[in-house]
């Protein structure tokens, strides 16, 4: 099963390598990872999507907790949440199907970021499934390059998942 972990860590050099190293040496597989600072500059948030059964995820969580710089771990998999990733595709349309490509981008509510006589860069944001569906739709046009971010996620409703715990606003 796919699990989404939202992890608050101290914003210090080396934290990312500690977390990534833990996954690799204990044989856990990271599906996607994204890191950035939060509204507090001393705290960063990592969103990690990891594949594994309940037992594996329990071990991942406990081992992550042992890292001194990991402050809080939320496994939000069981909750209602929104997730977003961003992807950019360099596509090589022909003059004949260029209009069709622009329609596809429109259907997925994507954007065209760059336009040249021989290629286009299109952008999409969305959950894992939407991005994969968009990629499938672009394939007939010829994809020359893909760049994707890891996913980020936030639980729906008024509850925040912060370093100090869950806060009701």
């Amino acid at each position: 099963m796919r699990h989404t972990l939202s992890i608050l860590v101290e914003n210090r050099t080396g934290v990312l390598s500690r977390v990534a190293g833990l996954f690799s040496r204990r044989g856990y597989n990271i599906e996607s990872l994204s890191v950035s600072t939060t509204d507090k500059k001393e705290i960063s948030r990592m969103t990690i999507v990891v594949e594994g059964d309940q037992k594996t995820i329990e071990q991942v969580t406990k081992q992550l907790h042992k890292l001194i710089e990991v402050i809080k771990i939320y496994n939000i998999t069981g909750e209602e949440f929104v997730e977003r990733g961003l992807a950019m595709f360099r596509v090589i349309p022909t003059p004949e199907n260029r209009a069709e490509l622009m329609q596809v981008v429109d259907i997925f509510r994507g954007h065209i970021l760059d336009f040249s006589p021989t290629s286009m860069i299109v952008e999409i944001t969305g959950g894992e499934k939407k991005i994969l569906a968009f990629e499938e739709a672009l394939k007939p046009f010829g994809i020359a390059e893909v760049v994707r971010t890891g996913e980020i996620a936030m639980v729906r409703g008024g509850k925040s998942k912060n370093a100090k715990g869950e806060n009701n606003d």
């Binding site: 081992q63 907790h65 042992k66």
Partner: peptide, 8 residues
Amino acid sequence: IDPAEISK
């Protein structure tokens, strides 16, 4: 004392 040892 180490939670990670439980059921490892």
